[in-house]
Structures are given as structure tokens and as C-alpha cells.
Design a protein around this nucleic acid. Structure first.
Length: 184
DNA sequence: TAAAAGATCCCCT
DNA sequence: GGGGATCTTTTAT
């Protein structure tokens, strides 16, 4: 049985992931920027249907979809919806709150703590997320999403996506207004 | 079998 | 603000 939190549209999950926490061992942070992707979005990996790469995106919600891009970067998504829907939320930025020394060690390029998790590939690097984690259960695995007991609360805001001409009104991109940890 | 683009980041100026 | 790095996946031939 799919958890209600994940059994919704990508836009709804993207909104409610703002303020939630992502933890990998002792390292963790508050999610401050997300972007939703579903099959109606030409920019989505699932737009043209299931392939070998995006298989986990078509799996059941509550799992991780990790992909490799630009020949060097990993990015992590929260899969949502029922199996076969091809819906997910890219985690674009985190405000680091725990285990910062672990993230600094994993990201020697980051000159300041602001750069530890600002951007999807930086975030993945800070937590050591790679293709080996693709498909993992976000409630039981190494990588966990904690969406209850948010302290302090972070209000989600949305706005038009940058660089997209179609369906700019869709609430696909969410962020914490004014956060210095938002990537854009 | 080839070609192009990519849910990006980093360093330079 | 701009370009290079670097290679997988997908789509076309």
C-alpha cells in the first residue's frame, strides 16, 4: 500500500516536500527547492515513456530515482504516484542542518556551507547519492525523507519555471521564498 | 553506428 | 556573464 503522502500528483508532493527533511545517516537538511516532473512535461525523462534509465521513475512512489547527466553529475528524485505513472520530484536544494562536516568532506569544492546542497548535483554529491541508490525505499533505506514534524516551518512558494515557454502556470517549481539556500 | 542533447557545475574574468 | 568539462541515453540513419 502506497503511503498517502507519495500517492499524489508531482506538483502536490513537490509543494509538501518544501520544509521536509532529507537524511543520509547523520547528515541531513531541510528541503528548500523542488521541481515536479510528470508525463505531460516535455522536459521530463518520463515524457516518452519507460526506458532502461528511467525505470525507477515508473516504479511505485516513495522510492528514489537517481540519474546521471552531463557526463559527471548525479541527481536525485522522489518518485510519486502509483507504479507505472512516471511521476517524480527533483530535489534541487537543501538547507544543511546536521552532519555538515560530513558534507564538507564529500564536497571539497564547496567554499562555503551555502554551496554544500545548493543545486541538484551538489546535493547528491554532499550526501554521496549515486546510481547505486537508484530505486531505494525512502522510508526504509539508507536515504530517508522525513515529512512530518517540520521545525521550523518553511512556507512553500511557487512561480513560473525559468526557460520554459509552455504551461508556465503549472505549479511545478517550488521554493522557500528568500532562502539563501535556493539555487536560483 | 553515429550524432546530438542533456532536470549541471566550476572556474575564469 | 560565459564557456569548458565529460559521457550516457536516446533517437535517427
Amino acid at each position: 500500500m502506497l503511503e498517502p503522502f507519495f500517492a499524489r500528483s508531482a506538483a502536490a508532493v513537490a509543494r509538501d516536500l518544501i520544509g521536509a527533511r532529507l537524511f543520509v545517516g547523520a547528515a541531513g537538511g531541510i528541503i528548500v527547492e523542488t521541481e515536479a516532473y510528470d508525463r505531460s512535461d516535455p522536459a521530463s525523462h518520463s515524457f516518452r515513456g519507460p526506458t532502461r534509465r528511467n525505470a525507477s521513475m515508473f516504479g511505485p512512489g516513495g522510492h528514489l530515482y537517481v540519474y546521471f547527466t552531463y557526463g559527471m553529475h548525479w541527481c536525485a528524485n522522489v518518485v510519486c504516484g502509483e507504479e507505472g505513472e512516471g511521476v517524480g520530484v527533483l530535489m534541487r536544494a537543501l538547507e544543511p542542518v546536521a552532519g555538515l562536516e560530513l558534507m564538507r568532506a564529500a564536497r571539497p569544492k564547496a567554499k562555503t556551507d551555502r554551496d554544500l546542497c545548493r543545486g541538484p548535483a551538489r546535493l547528491a554529491q554532499a550526501f554521496g547519492i549515486t546510481g547505486a541508490d537508484d530505486g531505494d525505499d525512502l522510508r526504509r533505506g539508507r536515504i530517508r525523507v522525513l515529512d512530518d514534524g517540520m521545525e521550523p516551518p518553511r512556507a512553500p512558494h511557487t512561480g513560473p519555471r525559468i526557460g520554459i515557454s509552455e504551461a508556465v502556470h503549472e505549479p511545478w517549481r517550488w521554493h522557500v521564498a528568500g532562502s539563501r539556500y535556493v539555487s536560483k
